[in-house]
Write a protein that binds this DNA or RNA. Sequence first.
RNA 1: GGGCGUUUAGCUCAGCUGGGAGAGCGCUACCCUUACAAGGUAGAUGUCGGGGGUUCGAUCCCCUCAACGCCCACCA
Length: 888
Amino acid sequence: MTMTTELSTTYSPKESESKWYKIWEKGNYFKPKKGKANKPFCIIVPPPNVTGKLHAGHALDVTTQDALIRFKRMKGYETLFLPGLDHAGISTQSVVEKMVWEQEKKTRRDFTREEFLKKIWAWKEEYGNTILDQQKAMGASCDWDYLTFTLDPIPNQAVKKFFVDMYNEKLIYQSDYIVNWDPALQSAVSDAEVEHIEVQGAFYHIKYQIKGSSEHLEVATTRPETLFGDTAVAVNPNDERYKHLIGKIAVIPLCNREVPIIGDEHVDLEKGTGCLKVTPGHDFNDFEIGKRHKLPIINILNLDGTLNNCTMEFSGLSCKEARKKIAKKCDEIGILIDTKNHVHPVGHGERSGVIIEPMISKQWFVNVKEMSRVAVEAVEKGDTTFYPKEWENTYFSWLRDPKDWCVSRQLWWGHQIPVFYCKECLHQWASEQNETECSKCKSENIYQDPDVLDTWFSSGLWPMSTLGWPNEAAMKEKKFDTFFPNSVLITGFDIIFFWVARMMMMSLKTQQQVPFKDVYIHAIVRDKLGRKMSKSLGNGIDPFDMIEQYGTDAFRFSLASGAGYNRGINLDPERIGGFRNFINKVWNAYRFIQPHLNSGQATLNNLAELDHHERWILAELNTTAKAMNEALEIYRYDEASSAVYSFVYDKYCSWFIELSKNILNGDDSKTKAKRVSVLKFVFRKMLALLHPITPFITEELWSHLKEQNEDLLITQDYPEYESQFVFKDDQDKMNKFIEVITSIRNLRASVNIKPKDEVNVELFSDNHELIQYYRANLINFKELARVRELKAGSKELNRPNKSIVNITTHTEIFVPLEGVIDLKDQIARLEKELSKTEIDYKKYEAKMNNANFMKNAPENVRAEVVQSEKELKEKIKSLKENIAQFKE
RNA sequence: GGGCGUUUAGCUCAGCUGGGAGAGCGCUACCCUUACAAGGUAGAUGUCGGGGGUUCGAUCCCCUCAACGCCCACCA
């Protein structure tokens, strides 16, 4: 008895999505298991910020990573997809500070450190997991038992170990150095966290008097307010204009401090006036000049960026206000010579958005010189490969010119720096333990460095710490040796410096090997007009809306179809709608075969029994499997998607299902059973091919198609290329069949024959094999082009009189008509075809007549040209003969 | 200032080591045909940014110009 369930004509994603995710997760399907490939495969999720909400970029992360994980899992790899969360020091602390201010009108300084950290932890517990739920909604097949937070004990242990080892090697050092100071955060930040933005400013030309002389220097500066910090004036030693002044004394306006005039090559003769005020405390270049000339350093700023008490009546003002007032005052006393508009780049805090002030401050630095050299070498040697390869340049450009990494942050939320100070003997030491007494004098009067480490310090150790390093028991439990190095890192290009480079350095330093074999840099998701998604533009696409509207599978397919070696994906919700339709197509293909399922088998026992169309669809399936395997191996999700899309739509649905209808509706039960088996066999393979990209609908349909003893689709074998399914001749013939059918349909449409009305068709060919083939396919012409009677014969035969005609290579298609035929129309159509064909033909003819081509072109190209030339010639002959006939 | 990238059908983009240009969406016409109107059938559209070169042959390689975008860079 055939059991049929009523199925809706449209697929509704919601139910199957939540259903299958739970079944997979509860059934431990996401856990690493040894499979037939007997190799590990591990991807670690770039940990999203706990402040975060899933955005389109994360959705792309999940899609590309999960598709690969599912693909490899099906291929029998021991797969681990490792999830995590990042404490994101600055962002998270800021969010909580803002919240506390709104709720209690208090700043963090109104609390003790412990009290405030408690608030952040509470916040993290409450909101931190939403993004994980969203990843689950995207279908991420992570082993959630591996979930790691960057502040968990093991990452903390990793951070301490790395820091202490580096400290003891003197590769981490403390120094009074000029750093990027973020006045809003009141913390140092690293170079990578500074964004240079072009702003409209001005060059102020100010007169600096020379002591004991009537001469003066004209200094050009964009920052007159820093003149209180000037400790020299510099000119280029080769500058004829000023050379004679070197060694003399200049007097700083307003404060009348006397400073030397020095010569330094750094000064550009062309820029400004060629005369530079040197402020070593607040400018990176000046700091270097100061070092070279042993100049004193004067700090003129408070930690919040306002001017301090070295600045006379200007103290307490912001730089911006002070600049205005100082310029005004200089003007009043007649030393402001000129003000010129000037557009120049100014560093802004990546997180805070405020202007970064270069300031001298005692901070911790990592000496990255050697580590970056090793990291560059590893990629040059190919230990790690970037896809697409061009991104290696970006990676190199950062690491080949390394600056020491400022890692201390004056924040509370993060890994506290494991350095201790003794108040008694002033001893300083680093330790992985929570120290209670001085390691030297045993005094208990000690304290730990209050600062925390840059968030990227713990992120850099992520591939190791998530797998248990440096805790040996944890490493064993988490199978460090199996999953490290990871197989591939998938992320966006915006964090190549921040993250990829640091992981490379820190892994090579601690493990003497690279952290991952491949790095796939995916595109940045933009809106449909190619603009960055941003709150201010309001053009953000919320993944949850997309899932709600179109279903996760459709959303994943859209992202996959846009993910190749490109830099941007312009995501248009309408496109997702298109893929939703595709998903629905799969659903309906299932609805078509569903009533017949019981009469067929899931396996094909005897390939020799298969008919032409069955061999054809298997060959097409095989081609698709090959293309998908190859594409996914090299992160060409776009190619994989388009291959499977075209197979499902253009091969299976448009032709194979159509060609199966007469068999399924017929009486020949043996033929029918065979056809159902093939439909089922191919459908099952098709689901497997699709599964990595669209896991939910495929698992849903698999549950209807699987045998009782079979497990879920997520564990089934991924279809591979198989030589037994190569049927080249059937593919060629089928292409011919499709061409002729299309041609008949075209003729019907050209004279408005109703879809229901039948026509007679006569085919004339110069190819005997084709004639036989057409004759054998009578029933299919009937089905697909509403043909009543089909004659196929040699071109030697007479053509029917009143007909409409199309000409293809090797075949003339005649549809005899009863009524009046518009000869003009007919001739026009054929002549259009003729001229097109002739243009084509001439190209080939020219080649054949080109001795150089015949001499130089490779054999296969030549053969192709010869073949095409022959076929086009034949077609032209047909066209001409028929046109002549109609003109008579 | 340095570097990278992009420019192909109305829109978004493929086009692998050079052999004669493709997809999706959109558009037009006709169809509710017994899997699917979230559908079917047929159809239109390209000086492959401009110019030059290499080659038997260039969307693809080289040079050059142009437009757009991104990244890096010490605020004279």
